[in-house]
Design a protein around this nucleic acid. Structure first.
Ligand SMILES: [Zn+2]
Ligand SMILES: [Zn+2]
Ligand SMILES: [Zn+2]
Ligand SMILES: [Zn+2]
Lengths: 152, 152
DNA sequence: AATTTAAATGATATAATATAACATAACTTT
DNA sequence: AAAGTTATGTTATATTATATCATTTAAATT
C-alpha cells in the first residue's frame, strides 16, 4: 500500500500545511522546497534522497545532491518531514506543527509508513529515561513489521 | 565517558560470551570476528565501520571494507553487537543471548551508549503495535540526550 | 531608489557508508 | 581423496551525504 484512498488529498493538505507553517514562522516556502515536499509525499513509502533527485531531474533540469539535501534539511527542521533512520529515507509528517515525539511503524512488505504519537509510549520512554537519569533530547523509534493489510 | 571503571572486564566478558555463544550454536568465532568484536568493545562509544577498518589495518596488513562488514554482520546476526541506526555505528551488546528487544540511550556529549531492555517499554511498544493491527518484527529505539555525568 | 546584508541556490568536488561479484582458501562431510 | 560448504581475499562500484566557494535573489537599511 503505497497510496491511500484519497491520496491527492494527502498531498494537497501537506502542501497547504507547508505554506501555513512557513508563513507563521516567517520562512520561505520556495519552489524547490515545495517541489521536494510534493515528491516526498508522492507515496506513503519512505522516499530516498537520490530518488527524489531523479524525479526532480525529470522536471527541473540538472539538480545536484546538495539541492535535495538542503530542501530536506529545511523540511526536517520545520517538522514537515521525518527521517527514517533505519532506511536512510524520508516521509512526510502527517501532522506537522502538532507533534513533538513521533514514532513510526514501517511495513516491510508494502513499505507504507504509519506515524503514531501515542502518549502512552511517550510516557514509557520518559519513565525509562528518568530511571536512568538520562535527559532526553530526541527519540527515534522505528517499528518494522507487517501492516494490517499485509499480515492478513 | 568512553571507558568505564573496569573496562578490561567489559572486553574480556564480551569476548568470552562471543566464544560461548558461537560454541553453543556451532558457529566459528574466527580471528577476524574476534578482533572486530574487540575493536567494537574498545570503548562504550558507537564504533564506525571505517574506524574499525583503520584500527584493523594497524595490525593486520591491508583489510578492506567487506572484511569488516562481514564480521559486523556476523556479530549482528548473533546478537553480539547492535547497530545504532541514527549514527551508522556499532556497539557491543551488553547481554548477548538474553535480550530480544534492546533500546539505547546515546549521550550526545560523551557519546556513551547505554543499553536498556525495560519490560515496561517493550510492553508499551507491543500495545501500540496491537492497537494499530501491526505485526512487529523488529524495533529500533534510540534516545539521544545527555547522560547523568554530562547533564550534571 | 541605491546600498548593504542576509538567505537561498548553483556548481564542483569529495567524503563517508555499504555492497556486488567472483576467486581462493579452509574446513566438513561423505 | 572428493565433494560440498563456509569463510576470506580481492577488485570494483553503489549509495548516501557534505564541504566549499561562487552567484543569485530577496530583505532590510540608508
Ligand atoms: Zn495518502
Ligand atoms: Zn510527525
Ligand atoms: Zn566498560
Ligand atoms: Zn543487546
Amino acid at each position: 500500500m503505497i497510496h491511500c484512498e484519497k491520496h491527492n488529498h494527502c498531498i494537497s493538505t501537506a502542501i497547504k500545511q507547508g505554506e501555513e507553517i512557513c508563513n507563521e514562522k516567517g520562512l520561505k516556502f520556495t519552489a524547490i522546497r515545495r517541489k521536494v515536499l510534493e515528491l516526498v509525499w508522492e507515496t506513503h513509502k519512505p522516499a530516498k534522497a537520490y530518488d527524489i533527485l531523479e524525479k526532480l531531474a525529470k522536471e527541473d533540469g540538472a539538480p545536484v545532491p546538495p539541492t535535495v539535501y538542503r530542501a530536506l534539511d529545511f523540511l526536517l527542521q520545520n517538522g514537515l518531514v521525518h527521517r527514517i533512520n533505519s532506511l536512510n529515507a524520508f516521509v512526510g509528517c502527517s501532522h506537522p506543527g502538532l507533534h513533538n515525539q513521533c514514532f513510526f511503524m514501517i511495513c516491510t512488505h508494502c513499505e507504507k509508513v504509519t506515524e503514531c504519537c501515542t502518549t502512552e509510549l511517550g510516557k514509557a520512554i520518559d519513565i525509562t529515561t528518568k530511571e536512568n537519569s538520562f535527559t532526553r533530547e530526541s527519540v527515534s523509534l522505528e517499528i518494522l513489521g507487517a501492516c494490517q493489510s499485509c499480515s492478513a
